[in-house]
Design a protein around this nucleic acid. Structure first.
Lengths: 201, 201
DNA sequence: GTCTATAACGAGATAGAC
DNA sequence: GTCTATCTCGTTATAGAC
């Protein structure tokens, strides 16, 4: 039986701090010293939990992907229609921005040429599973008649994800959530099925 | 009278190499040593031309913005309609990706929290002038009847620019230009005026 | 304008005590 | 599991010769 996380283990605390640092400063923009200082640990203690920075990076992507996947599972269970799932998906991104962060994998995508191969692969895998999930939601929405789009569901999924990543990227230097919201609203609304153009009433 | 750039000055060569390194590895992902090695110069020689890395960074954004602005001026003169200007704008981004690069300011936007204030301001100014140019093109297209959109021209400009930046960001780890093209095509096509929905025939 | 040399610092990482 | 101490290397930057 799992205990309540009254006090998170050190490894978890390290991941929490490192995750925030990567999402705000980039993988090349933070150091073990930064994490250690924030947790009042020594650098050596960090190396005990994550032998190398590359290991820490892989662990960060793995956990982020798990958490994101769990959030998508929750949407699959809780949301009543495809449109509601998309709203939930957008809110995940908006939450990241409200926290003054970039998507972890969006940040790492920018730095991808400097990353160890394992991290690069994990970033691509993150995008892949996002696209597959979105693609399924889009297919559902089309099937059920509350979403419409001309492209394949996979291409439309790429348009959505790319649009949201770009909206985060540009909105952050402005520290302006409404910039993100304007773009996100458009991406959702252009998928709405309008009676006048829908197939067969 | 300007001379032909048969042999570019050292400062220009430094900017060329540094620009490519920032666009591929990020501002925190390259060093003076990298640039010096590539040009067979000493690090000290670089410091003669650009006293600090922050100075080099500012010079990079300034030159990139000038070049980009000149390209937009050329589109204003050469393109026959708003739609053609947008095509040209998209091609600028596609050229960056074909060179296996990220937009300089898109990359710096990701790293913005780690940048000197002057660089941060210059990045935002780059986005601002892009949005103003796009907004004017969109207004022109609406006026002349070959573009249509529901939002304000400024909001639509943000949708376009954010979409293209995001398309670059995600396409690059895949090293797949078609990923970018799919998104860019959608962004342009959704602006096309269709007779069935256009105002007053 | 470019060099060698070096300063001053911070990075990632390791050894070994507790 | 965390520490101190240390190593090695790379970083930005400067001094002063050529």
């Amino acid at each position: 039986m799992k205990e309540l996380p009254v006090e998170a283990g050190t490894a978890t605390q390290v991941l929490d701090v490192a995750e925030r640092l990567v999402q705000t400063r980039g993988f090349n923009g933070f150091s073990y010293a930064d994490v250690a200082a924030e947790l009042n640990l020594s650098k050596a203690a960090l190396h005990y939990h994550f032998a190398s920075k590359a290991d820490l990076g892989q662990a960060l992507i793995a956990r982020y992907s798990e958490h994101f996947g769990a959030a998508l599972d929750a949407l699959d269970i809780g949301a009543e229609c495809a449109r509601a799932k998309l709203d939930g998906y957008v809110e995940l991104y908006e939450g990241v921005l409200r926290d003054e962060r970039m998507c972890l994998c969006g940040m790492l995508a920018a730095e991808h040429e400097t990353l160890p191969a394992a991290m690069r692969d994990a970033v691509v895998a993150f995008f892949d599973f996002n696209e597959v999930w979105l693609s399924n939601v889009l297919e559902q929405g089309k099937r059920e008649g509350d979403l419409q789009f001309a492209e394949s569901a996979m291409v439309r999924a790429r348009i959505l994800m790319g649009g949201l990543e770009g909206a985060l990227l540009v909105a952050r230097p402005y520290a302006d959530v409404s910039r993100f919201q304007q773009i996100a609203l458009h991406l959702i609304q252009e998928l709405e099925a309008h009676p006048s153009t829908a197939r067969n009433g």
